[in-house]
Design a protein around this nucleic acid. Structure first.
Lengths: 154, 154
DNA sequence: TAATTGAGTACCATTTTAGTCCTGTATAAA
DNA sequence: TTTATACAGGACTAAAATGGTACTCAATTA
């Protein structure tokens, strides 16, 4: 499925909501109402986004959350990473790389390239795109410039 | 993280192993040994791949598993779909589309476009690519042809 | 008919995810 | 200075997905 977690989904919706009204700070309760999600859950999500540096928070009366930088400088990859950690399709695509099977695996290298391409794709989508109702145009993926298609079935 | 499940990872490794020796049928035990994974787990994975139509199985002595079609006609998206279901980043990217929040969500359309781009990317990577040690060249993602970057912060 | 090998199903343990609650602390306005 | 507002942080629980195992049945071949 390769699906986003539900919290990540919430995060995107909430971020988009804030992005549409970037001036005023938004209280957690207000956002929860606007997007029709339970308050505590939205609150939790907001905290994660602050910790990741995508939002800044202001305590006290009239406080709330605001974008840490302009919406066009926040990417889908940023939002996903804030909730789920860095975008990486396989264990070994991550920094640690403590996979024991590297020897017998045989697919690690190319998976990592795919993983990188996905990350690049997600980095090219900004919060501005997501928040805007206007359809974004993603480049149609050209077929891979294959190095050797038939070499395998030898 | 947007990570593949471990079983999907196994599936890719096993498929690659078979792809490298596509003539003879491979018994589950043999494959488990080759990729250094527990036999029952590999077996479970193989069954899912058969059910998805990526492998064909032959029972009895000298039986085993073979590719249902040439490796270059099997994509990464196929393998992921075989284990995890169709590639879709959000609930609403799926066929059912029974998300209750479509009204307040506001990001559904563009998420679906992103989801589609990811699927296209994964469909452009074949089992031949994965099985081959030669690096594949994925096209570098061009920046999105943005429709309106500033329209949001109004 | 015996040995081999996959098919199907059921089950359990673990981990992850989601959601809630409570207490503390900073801020602004009265 | 007091009070109401609103975020911070952590603990906790419930539910679901995941991963792994075991057991029995069916098919094929030698």
């Amino acid at each position: 499925m390769l699906k986003l977690s539900r919290l990540t989904d919430y995060a995107a919706v909430v971020m988009a909501q804030i992005a549409r009204h970037p001036e005023a700070p938004h209280a957690a309760a207000e956002l929860a109402e606007a997007v029709q999600l339970p308050h505590p859950t939205v609150s939790k999500t907001l905290k994660m986004l602050v910790k990741a540096g995508l939002l800044v928070s202001q305590r006290g009366a009239q406080g709330g959350y605001r974008l840490a930088r302009p919406a066009y400088q926040i990417t889908a990859a940023d939002i996903i990473a804030a909730i789920e950690g860095p975008v990486a399709m396989t264990e070994c695509s991550q920094a640690e790389g403590d996979c024991e099977l590297v020897d017998t695996c045989g697919v690690a290298d190319n998976w990592q390239r795919v993983s990188l391409a996905m990350r690049t794709l997600l980095e090219s989508v900004t919060l501005s795109h997501l928040a805007d109702a206007t359809p974004i145009k993603l480049p149609v993926q050209l077929p891979i410039q294959s190095v050797s298609v038939s070499a395998v079935s030898a």
